[in-house]
Amino acid sequence: MTSRLLLVPPAIGPALREARFYDGSSSIDGPVRVTAADLPEAARVVLSPGARCRDTAEALGLRGAEATDLAPLDAGRWQGRTLAEVAATEGKAVARWLADPEYPAPGGESVRAVCTRVARWLESLPEGRTVAVVEPEVVRAAVVHALGLPVEAFWRLDVAPLTATELSGRSGRWNLRLGRPLGGE
């Protein structure tokens, strides 16, 4: 049987709008115009830990458990600061972090580490449909793994708030469905 995964990044909020390294506390703005009725029926719902995924799931009318393997990329001491603020004081470190998937954020983790963590979770996904309200970097990591892309492609994938990225597969072979709006067939 096939595993089906619908990845939904959170609604827009201050941290996303300000390009702020997420610290788990910032939430979302205003109402969400999509509901659970607009999503396919799922056997399970999982969430990235943090307020904006929890609040997005609640706004969608979804109840799910947080999965630690779906946590956002740990930006270490940069958490809570904007990319511009960090670049102004640690420009070389930011440039290296963005260019080298092996280089961890100071006190945090590397892009490769988050990709490995998410790949491990993806390969353990049970049969049936799962809806996952997850941070944009989790969507990137899942797509990198599913398509067998080089980890260097991670930052080249744009993930818009409240969109659907669908993966389906079995036995380590995944397919990606692009372009379906939330609530559409």
Rank of each mutant, 00 (worst) to 15 (best):
A65K: 15
P14H: 13
V118M: 06
L47S: 05
E66Y: 01
G24I: 10
V144H: 01
V138C: 06
R129E: 03
T89Y: 07
A87E: 14
D29G: 11
L98M: 12
R156C: 06
D38H: 09
P10S: 05
E137W: 13
P104E: 03
A51D: 08
A84P: 00
Q79N: 11
G128P: 05
P161A: 02
P72R: 14
A43C: 05
R96W: 05
R33P: 10
Q79I: 11
S48N: 09
T165N: 02
W97Q: 03
L83T: 14
E102W: 15
A59Q: 05
G30Y: 02
V118D: 07
A113E: 15
P150K: 09
G30Q: 07
E137N: 15
A146Y: 04
L70F: 11
P10F: 02
V133Q: 07
A67K: 11
G169N: 10
P9D: 03
L6C: 06
T35Y: 04
Y22I: 11
L16V: 12
L70N: 12
R81I: 02
A87S: 14
L182F: 01
A71D: 05
S3M: 01
P150V: 03
P126F: 02
P181A: 13
E102A: 15
E185R: 15
W174E: 08
G128N: 10
D55S: 04
L7G: 00
R120L: 14
E123L: 10
G64P: 04
L39N: 06
R44I: 06
K92W: 10
R129F: 04
T116R: 15
